[in-house]
């Protein structure tokens, strides 16, 4: 059964499509309006990382650094320890990819109040190819002490995560996808940082599906099809990867007895790994991992790539059946 307050058209063919990155732009405007200490920095990708509206509305609080992501991170670190709340954006392969050490030392270790927006994350970046498809960003960010990590599932949640990041103290990473994707939530869907949300709950769940980001929709499609095959599941939207909602994941795993993690990211070190850590520590159950299986992506149509790399609803369904056999 779908949870309340979700988009009622979630399973319709004409479900509204909008890019997750759009939520960053809208969130920045709202946060910037509310707090004059918010500043936005960009590295020659102002429009495609959706910082343009903020730049136009608050030109004095917007800084263009050119193609220089290491400088982007470290300048923001300086602003962040001087009373400002900097948001920095680039493609995730460059920030937090290229400038990881600057983020580690000058932002995380310094505990500087910087918000890092990693755009064009995941293989659904599409035609640009693997150089521009960040599939490791969650792993390299969640391993940093002091770092909070959000992976919103649609543009509305992305807006909420951006606003929450502005209000919460501390270094924060938010992951955004480029391509238009189905709108899963509504303005009324609860979003509490650190609390995973149940989006689908069967009466007698046999498997827990923990999903993040753009693939949450596929997880819901899979859950509905499984229900028709009389296989009950719970779908948990893990929008906060860190701090992770240990309690909810562990208790649901205990109830279901098996888990499948779903991420548009490398399975080594990412969301599946984070879930496995929680399970191993609290309540070990068999787990299957949907995600990039230790391979780079490539150019192509985003939805074709999701199929080719085994992250479609059908693949999630198969993974659930497989994990049930391992119970």
């Amino acid at each position: 059964m779908l949870a309340n307050k979700l988009n009622p058209k979630i399973f319709e063919k004409d479900v509204e499509m909008k890019a997750i990155r759009d939520g960053y732009g809208d969130g920045l405007l709202i946060a910037g309006e509310a707090n004059p200490d918010i500043v936005v920095l960009c590295a020659d990708l102002t429009e495609s990382t959706r910082s343009q509206k903020f730049a136009e509305k608050f030109p004095k609080r917007f800084f263009e650094l050119g193609v220089a992501e290491q400088n982007l991170a470290a300048v923001a670190a300086g602003l962040g320890v001087s009373g400002k709340i900097p948001f920095i954006s680039s493609y995730a392969t460059f920030s937090p990819g290229r400038n990881w050490e600057q983020i580690r030392t000058t932002i995380a270790y310094n505990d500087s109040n910087v918000k890092i927006a990693g755009h064009h994350a995941g293989i659904m970046t599409g035609p640009d190819g693997a150089t521009h498809e960040a599939t490791e960003d969650v792993a390299i960010m969640r391993t940093l002490p002091n770092m909070r990590v959000f992976v919103p599932c649609d543009w509305i949640e992305a807006k909420k995560a951006t606003i929450a990041a502005a209000k919460l103290w501390g270094p924060t990473y938010i992951r955004f996808a480029r391509e238009k994707s189905p709108v899963v939530t509504t303005e009324k869907t609860p979003f509490t940082p650190g609390k995973a949300e149940i989006l689908w709950q069967s009466k007698k769940p046999q498997a827990l599906i923990v999903a993040s980001g753009v693939l949450v929709h596929n997880a819901l499609l899979a859950a509905r099809e499984l229900e028709n095959e009389k296989i009950g599941t719970v779908v948990l939207n893990l929008h906060t990867i860190k701090p992770i909602d240990e309690e909810k994941i562990a208790s649901l795993a205990q109830k279901c007895g098996a888990a499948v993690s779903v991420e548009e990211h490398q399975i080594y070190g990412g969301i599946g790994s984070a879930v496995a850590e929680v399970l191993a520590k609290n309540h070990p159950v068999p787990q299957e991992f949907i995600g990039m299986q230790d391979t780079f992506g490539e150019s192509g149509n985003p939805w074709d790539l999701v199929k080719k790399y085994g992250m479609d609803a059908k693949d999630i369904r198969h993974a659930v059946k497989k994990v049930l056999r391992r119970k």
């Binding site: 035609p127 640009d128 190819g129 693997a130 150089t131 521009h132 490539e298 150019s299 192509g300 149509n301 074709d304 790539l305 080719k308």
Partner: peptide
Amino acid sequence: LRKINSRLQGHPH
């Protein structure tokens, strides 16, 4: 160019 399964990646590989 830029299509799935191509040698001509969107950025050269």
